[in-house]
Structure formats: C-alpha cells, structure tokens
C-alpha cells in the first residue's frame, strides 16, 4: 500500500510538472502569433480591373493592402490600436479614395466604424457609436452609401447576437451631410450596391420569422418605389429554401450573381457555389462546382469575369480565404495569387 501511495504521489507530481511545462511552452510558442493570418473576404476591385484593395489578417488583426496584377502587395493602411481591423474596403470611381470599416470589440461589445482613406491617411467619417456594416460609393463618387444598424442583439435565446434595425444611409462627401435612404428598421440587410444615382439594391429578409425568405430589394431613392428580386420558385437547393447570399448585379443590371448552397459535404456542412440568374429570377445557372464556400462576387467592368472569395475552411475554426477569377461564359477559373510582402 505504501508503495502504491508513493507511486501515486510521483505520478501526480509528474503530471503537474508536465502540465506547467506544456502551458509554458504553449505561451512562448504562440506569443503574439495567435489568430487568423491570411486574406480577408470582400476585396474591392478598382476601375482598371487590375488593382484590388483587400484586407489581410495577421494574428486576427486586418490591415488594408493593394496589389496590381502580379506585383507584391503594398500596405495601404493599418490600425494603430491593438485588436482593431480594417475590413470591407470600397474604392471610389476615380480610384483615389477608399472607404472601409474599422472593426473591434471592447468588453464583448462590437464596434464597426465608417472610415475613409485618402491622400495617404485614414480618418473616421462617423463616430464609434454608429454601427456600419457595409459601405460603397455612388457611381459619380459624390455619395457614400452604407448600411447602419441601430440594435445589436439576439431576438431569441437560441440565436447569436447580430446587427438588427438596419437601414440604408448615404453621406454627401462634400458637405458630410448624412441622410436616411430607407426607414425600415430591417431585421437584416447586406450586399449593398448602388446601381446609378437614383437606385440602390440590398439583400434583406422578407416575411415572418421562420416563414420568410431572403430577397434582393432594388429601391429608387427619389421615388421610393422598390422592386423585389428573388430566384424563381422552381429553384431548389440542398437547404430547405434558397439562401440567396451576396446577390450582386452585373454591370448591365440584367443579371444577378449570387451565392447559394450547391451541395453538402460529408459532415453535413453546406457548400456554397456561385449562381447566375436573370433579373426576373429566371434562367438560374450554377457557375461553379468547387465544393467550397464561394461568396462575395465582384464583376469586372471590362470583361465578363467575376472575382469571388473562396473560403476553403468554411465552418472551421479558422478560415482559409483565396481570391479566384471566374468566367461564367467559358467556365474557366483561376486563383488570383496574392504576393504578400514579408510581415513582421
């Protein structure tokens, strides 16, 4: 019995030592190196169709980079405060200004602040209390359109907190005067696009909870008239109903590119592919069959090609984003390989 007790004691002491060694090793091995390092989603394509501005995460903190063709990416703007990220860039029509969102959390409260980068410097356009999820320029470059949320909460105990009570706003970049474009306090809004000086579109949820569906609303800003775009009722996906994620109008506004569930992986995760349809929701065609998470389509202006973000680790702990160029006409697709500078 004495022998057993002594063995037990030695074993407990050994395990305690192993634990502290592992904790010490873990802390030193990951010091300043934790979090996602890689491309962020939603790159912005410049008017020349050759330059993109994109967020790049280093240890969970994103900065904005720019690259043209095969050149090494160049750092544009980097947050000066720990834990903040610059995400969702939008390039002005004259390619001189970049609007983006500064994102961070303080004591579990998330913040998303509207920022602008011009003449080599970034500055806030709105206060920290204004929760802005997306931003884009009007085609004439005079206005910034953005989605603002007035409430960040979970309506149900079985759902996570999300931005709600959302509306489209715009700001005159000369006068800095802000005005509400919609007054809907929408449950959900995303994929904001400005079609022309009078028309914007956004994805929203329509109908009652658990019975409604996602649609694309096209709104005439002056008259207030709106058009609802959604996939034809015959469109079936492995999900119960179409998710109609990130709908994006083509440059001629006759087609809509969107992301939806194309298949299900072996472990039951939805795999999102890119689809194209006519504006009236007809003639839906699956563009990709990559069995990954394809989203955030951006149309090139001078060619039929589309830039998309592909997350190769969707629903995993850490994403693995890549940018790919797809040609819906030929079916060709190739990765836009980003040559990143050596990071500290």
């Amino acid at each position: 019995m004495k022998l057993l007790k002594s063995k037990s004691l030695w074993f407990v002491v050994s395990m305690a030592l192993v634990y502290f060694v592992l904790v010490g090793f873990g802390e030193s091995a990951t010091e300043g190196k934790t979090g996602y390092t890689g491309l962020g989603e939603s790159p912005a394509l410049a008017g020349d169709d050759e330059t993109i501005v994109f967020p790049y995460f280093q240890n969970d903190q994103a900065s904005l980079y720019m690259t043209t063709g095969q050149q090494e990416a160049e750092l544009l703007a980097s947050p000066d405060q720990e834990g903040r990220s610059y995400i969702r860039p939008a390039i002005s029509p004259d390619d001189r200004t970049i609007a983006f969102i500064q994102s961070w959390s303080e004591e579990e409260t998330p913040y998303k602040q509207l920022m602008i980068f011009e003449n080599g410097e970034e500055r806030a356009l709105l206060g920290e209390e204004q929760f802005i999820t997306e931003v884009t320029f009007s085609p004439d470059g005079k206005y910034l359109y953005y989605l603002k949320s007035d409430l960040y909460t979970n309506y149900s105990t079985v759902s996570q907190e999300h931005p709600h009570e959302m509306d489209v706003y715009r700001m005159n970049l000369e006068t800095k005067v802000e005005e509400a474009v919609t007054e809907t306090d929408a449950y959900d809004m995303s994929s904001l696009h400005v079609w022309d000086e009078d028309t914007v579109s956004y994805r929203s949820f329509e109908g009652e909870a658990f019975e409604g569906h996602d649609v694309m609303k096209v709104l005439n800003v002056e008259s207030g008239e709106s058009e609802t775009i959604q996939p034809d009722a015959s469109f079936e996906t492995p999900s119960q109903m179409p998710i109609f994620y990130s709908p994006t109008p083509s440059p001629d506004r006759e087609h809509i590119a969107f992301s939806d569930v194309g298949s299900t992986s072996e472990n039951g995760t939805f795999q999102y592919e890119l689809f194209m349809m006519n504006r009236d929701g007809s003639n839906i065609e699956q563009v990709t069959n990559l069995h990954e998470h394809v989203s955030e389509p951006v149309f090139f202006k001078k060619s039929p090609e589309i830039l998309v973000t592909i997350n190769k680790q969707f629903a995993k702990r850490i994403p693995d984003n890549e940018y790919w160029i797809l040609n819906p006409e030929t079916g060709e697709h190739k990765e836009w390989v980003i040559d990143m500078p050596e990071l500290q």
Binding site: L4, T30, T34
Partner: peptide
C-alpha cells in the same frame, strides 16, 4: 499551437486532471 490559436490551458487542465484521476484509479 500549430494552428496559431490561444492554447486552452483550462481545457488542458481538465483533460490532464481527468486522465490523472483515472490513472490513479488504475494504480
């Protein structure tokens, strides 16, 4: 550590504590 994630020291503690108690039961 390989995934550059914050190592879960509390998680490791529970895992090792349970394993140690079971091993002690074997002893």
């Amino acid at each position: 550590i390989m995934n550059a994630e914050e190592p879960g020291t509390d998680w490791l503690l529970v895992q090792m504590a349970l394993g140690t108690v079971v091993s002690l039961a074997a002893f």
